[in-house]
C-alpha cells in the first residue's frame, strides 16, 4: 500500500463502512455522515467515492437481500477489504504520531 493516500472524504466514507457494517450502503452512509459530521453530503458523491475505492481495491461490495422499501430494489453493501482496513489504520496511526509531536496535545 505504499504511496497510496486517502482523501479526507474517502477516509470518512471508509470509516462509515466500518461503523455501519451490514448497513453500509450508499444512502445510509450519506445520511450517517450528514448526521454525525453535520455537513451537507450529496448521495452521488458518496456513490462515486465508493466506486473509486472499489476500483482501488480498498472496499468490496456485494448485493444485499431484497427489501420492501426502495421499490423492492437490492442494496449494494460495501465492506472494507484487508488492504483497505490496513490503509485506514496506517493513516490513523500516522496522524496520531504527528499529533504526538505536539507536546500539549499528546494523546498517549
Amino acid at each position: 500500500m505504499k504511496g497510496m493516500i486517502l482523501g479526507e472524504f474517502e477516509e470518512l466514507v471508509m470509516l462509515m463502512c466500518l461503523v455501519l457494517k451490514e448497513d453500509a450502503y450508499g444512502i445510509h452512509i450519506a445520511e450517517e455522515i450528514k448526521h454525525r459530521m453535520n455537513r451537507r453530503v450529496n448521495l452521488s458523491a458518496v456513490h462515486v467515492t465508493l466506486y473509486r475505492l472499489e476500483d482501488k481495491g480498498l472496499v468490496s461490495s456485494y448485493m444485499g437481500g431484497v427489501t420492501s422499501s426502495r421499490g423492492g430494489r437490492r442494496k449494494r453493501i460495501f465492506e472494507l477489504t484487508n488492504s483497505g482496513y490496513a490503509l485506514l489504520k496506517e493513516t490513523r496511526e500516522k496522524r496520531i504520531s504527528i499529533w504526538n509531536l505536539i507536546p500539549e496535545f499528546k494523546l498517549s
Binding site: 450502503y25 450508499g26 445510509h28 448521495l43 466506486y51 448485493m63 422499501s69 449494494r76
Partner: peptide, 14 residues
C-alpha cells in the same frame, strides 16, 4: 450500478 443507485435515491425520497 443502476439497481443500488435507484434504490438509494428512492430511500432518500422516502
Amino acid at each position: 450500478l443502476q439497481e443500488s443507485v435507484i434504490g438509494d435515491l428512492e430511500e432518500q425520497y422516502e
